[in-house]
Design a binder for these strands. Structure first.
Lengths: 227, 227
DNA sequence: GTCTATACGATGATAGAC
DNA sequence: GTCTATCATCGTATAGAC
């Protein structure tokens, strides 16, 4: 199937089987979700045998993780680059909390309105946080731990004097707010009575930053602003 | 199977088949999640025939919705009662934002550490927000719309002068923060470096209230508190 | 109206030949 | 590495007993 010609010449291997599976899986998962997409749909779309997915990946869940990791890595790399810039600009001063939040959010939101076949992908990321199973044990050290290791000190530098536990609570809530925005569509439109467009990431970014910054400051520092 | 005795006396029907299915489904869904629980597990646990679940409920998804609605209704009723009290205390003054948030959060958090077999249930509620499918079209008018209709004006009364769209964004983010706390366990412990106990709802409530209040105020009103 | 027995097509996974 | 063949299990549908 991969052999385009039966000559001795090395065939122009446009796409490896493994990558074709990943591409088709990503596309179908984005369009129909994890559960609604069968391995047979994926292998048919990829023009690959069904058993190949169990050879390259052990299970459907592992395939899902592989799809997610492949998209997550450039996002996380971008996050770290942006954080580098924020820290470089700040010098020895405390970091801007809004700038740190922006470095965390911008790469994900950029992926939301990127091109063609990936446009629905962030919905998967949003759902990822609430799916059960042991996926976190496998995906976390590889994808989240490095980002967390850099952003946790950054948040402390942005909120000097705040207790670490309170920052952690605030980060947890903030991740939930972000994931819910990424995953959801209909609810936002309902709750704003049709005023907000879920696909307008340019409108979402400043609001997410403002909301998270206000929440983090309230939970860590000056508690009672009282209206 | 439901006939405990073969006399003419009306048997002491301890549990109806329909309720036994709901009870078993709720228990198993809470423990293992929706996808990982098969209808055969449920009917076996409930000591009921497999086809009974398709007689009383049409499909597995409808069963899930029935399980959720059964738990959600008393929670929402409690929310409205608490909101009544908040409004009664306020008189003609603006509402306390923290009090409104407390009325929204307390009933859900109470369900989190309630008794026995339901203790894992809120994880389902947390996941519900991010599950795909058309569940919202069916569950929303019945369960969410009445609560939204009462709380949306309450938030406006608690933040006079704020634009409705911004309040909507803030409510959306807040729902995400709440859902992520309800659904998640491991991530909170990681992000707080073991300092926070996800099952300690008494610790979570004031922090959720403070975070949401700070976020809502930042997104609607005085934007720049600047550290 | 309630419930049971039984069957159907599709799924994720695996073993073994090439 | 790849493919065919096969497996147990899944959600669902139906015919018929009480």
């Amino acid at each position: 199937m991969n052999q385009a010609f039966d000559t001795d010449e090395a065939p122009i291997r446009v796409t490896e089987t493994k990558d074709r599976i990943l591409d088709s899986a990503e596309k179908l998962f984005s369009e129909h979700g994890f559960a609604a997409t069968s391995l047979r749909q994926i292998t048919t779309e990829a023009a690959v045998n069904l058993a190949a997915v169990n050879y390259h990946f052990q299970s459907k869940e592992s395939l899902i993780l592989a799809v997610l990791l492949r998209k997550l890595e450039p996002i996380n790399q971008r996050r770290l680059e942006l954080l580098d810039e924020v820290e470089a600009e700040a010098g020895d001063d405390p970091l801007s909390l809004e700038a740190v939040l922006g470095a965390f959010l911008l790469p994900v939101l950029e992926a939301k309105d990127s091109r063609v076949q990936l446009c629905n992908f962030p919905r998967l990321m949003g759902r990822m946080y609430t799916e059960p199973g042991d996926w976190m044990l496998r995906i976390f050290p590889q994808a989240f731990a490095p980002v967390l290791a850099r952003f946790q000190p950054a948040f402390r530098r942005a909120m000097p004097g705040a207790e670490i536990e309170e920052i952690g609570w605030g980060m947890h809530f903030s991740i939930g707010a972000m994931a819910h925005y990424l995953a959801g569509g209909a609810l936002l439109k309902t709750v704003t009575m049709g005023m907000a467009d879920p696909s307008d990431t340019a409108a979402a970014l400043p609001r997410l930053v403002a909301y998270m910054a206000g929440g983090l400051r309230a939970i860590t520092g000056q508690k009672e602003i009282s209206q």
